[in-house]
Amino acid sequence: MKIKEVIVVEGKDDTAKIKQAVDADTIETNGSAVNDAIIEQIKHAKEKRGIIIFTDPDYPGQRIRHIVSNAVPGCKHAFLSKSEAKAKHDKGIGIEHATKDTIQKALSSIYELTQEYSSELTREDLLQYGLLGGNKARSRREKVGLELRIGYTNGKQLLKRLNMFQISKVMFIETMNRIIQEENNE
C-alpha cells in the first residue's frame, strides 16, 4: 500500500512501524514540543503532497494533532483507538504498538477536517442515542469513535468532531443502531 501524502507522527518508533505497514514518508514531531521548523516542514509537505496527521490516541497525541491542524489547516486525519494502540506486555499506548493490519486500516479510513461544516447532527441526536450523560455514554462514545474511525472524544467534543468530519446523519444513525444492537446481544 503506497501513501501519497506525508504522514505526521510523533517519533522514530512510529515511523519504523508505519514503514513496516505501508510505503510512506513521515515527518516526526519529536514529541509534543512541535517547533516552528517542524511546522514549516509540514506546511511545505502539505503544499507538495498533502498531510495525514497520525498521532497516538492519548493526551500528548491529541495535543500534537491540535497544534499541527491549527498551524496547517486542511490536513487529513487518521486515528487508532486506545485498544488498537496498546502494548501487549506494558502500559504503553502508541502507533508503535499497533499491528500492520491496524495501521493499514487506519490509513485507509482518513478524514479531511473541514473548517466550514454543516451541523447536520445536533446535541439532541447525541442525547437520543445515550452518548451524553448516563452510565453507557462513555462506552458508546468509545465505540462510535472506533466504528467511524474518528477517535475517542468526550461528550462536549463528539458533536464537533462528527460534524467537522462530515459524518452524515444516516451514517451516524446506522452506526448507533449497530452499537445498540451489539449491546443488546451481550
Rank of each mutant, 00 (worst) to 15 (best):
I27K: 08
N30Y: 11
G31H: 10
G31P: 06
A33T: 11
D36I: 13
D36P: 06
D36V: 12
A37K: 14
E40W: 04
K46M: 12
G50A: 14
G50C: 14
I52Y: 05
I52K: 05
F54Q: 08
D58Q: 08
Y59L: 15
P60A: 13
G61W: 03
R65G: 04
R65N: 13
I67T: 13
V68P: 02
V68S: 00
V68E: 05
N70S: 13
A71N: 09
A71T: 01
K76P: 04
F79A: 00
L80I: 11
S83M: 11
S83R: 09
S83N: 11
A85R: 06
K88W: 06
D90I: 11
G92L: 09
I93E: 02
G94T: 01
G94E: 02
I95E: 00
I95D: 02
E96M: 07
A98Y: 01
D101M: 10
Q104F: 12
Q104W: 08
A106C: 14
S108V: 09
S108N: 12
S109E: 10
S109T: 05
I110A: 03
I110H: 02
I110V: 15
E116P: 02
Y117M: 09
S119Y: 12
E120K: 15
D125R: 10
Q128N: 14
G130E: 03
L131S: 06
L132C: 08
L132A: 08
L132F: 12
G133C: 12
N135I: 07
K136F: 09
A137I: 06
R138C: 07
R141S: 03
E142Y: 05
V144Y: 01
V144H: 08
G145K: 00
E147G: 02
L148P: 05
R149G: 03
Y152R: 10
T153V: 03
T153I: 00
G155H: 11
G155V: 02
K156N: 09
R161F: 07
